[in-house]
Amino acid sequence: MRIGDLSDGELARQVRARPGLDVRIGPFLVNLRLGLCEPLPLLQRMWHDYPLEPSAGIRDFHVSLDHNGWLRRWWRPQARFTVDGRSPFQPLAAAHHFPMLEWGLNWCVARRGHHLLMLHAAVLERGGRALILPGAPGAGKSTLCTALAHRGWRLLSDEFALVCPQYGRLLPLPRPIPLKNGSIGVIRDFAPEAEIGPAFTGTRKGTVAHVRPPSAAVARMDEPATPGWLVFPRWQAGADTQLEPLSRSDAFLLVASNAFNYELLGETGFITAARLVERCGCHTLSYSNLDEAIVRLGALAEAAA
């Protein structure tokens, strides 16, 4: 059963009562409880395809979103995110409930997923091979990722490249993609079929709206992909589209500095990152035109087919 198969009432009942809702998101089992009802409609849309696994043995995270005290229900309402009973962040405006839940889950993955090498990167797949797009904030990673996910590439993740040290494969973690500010309009124009949620204004990242992960991506989230390409994108207004080769040693440096846990993993981090770089074609991409960028990246996949 998926979240979308629950009626509104049943979803509200399960998520408010113990033991909460056990949801499979990629390799993680998340136990979710909500003390506020505001996120429910969006949760049902954005998490629509995630399977429920009430009988699963190991929960990776117990997360909840609640009112921040009795008074804060009514006066400047605030919401508090907790994981395993502890609050890693200051409470935020209750109106930012869904972004807070998603940021909270990012925190959980980044802090707990140390059995994997984790890069701050979007990942998509074509022909069984993964395109990894590491990117600093502002590099245009999420915009490019969303565009590719609506042009024939399977979304594995917008935020985390999860590399399995044992086999070197990329594990899918398809979650709602948070578009920010100008990117929201860009994607509305570029991919009218993309399901975009409401815009949350005044968040710490400006205006944020989430794109629902394509159903096919969620349905295949148990299918890893082998490394194919490491492409470091950089969006720049007016830039020509340039896909340039990058040396492996430079790519390694960027991968290591982009990883959440490279140093923490020690030798395993070095070996996993080195194998990843070894198996990938490495490039930098400068672009301002999404269509052109997609054509160039598509050509990489076609050349490898």
């Binding site: 492996r248 040693s249 140093e263 030798e267 070095f270 080195a274």
Partner: peptide, 17 residues
Amino acid sequence: LEVEWDGERLLYHGASG
């Protein structure tokens, strides 16, 4: 631990990480 690409070598030093 070492890897070498294009004449450049990366060295991982286990003691310091």
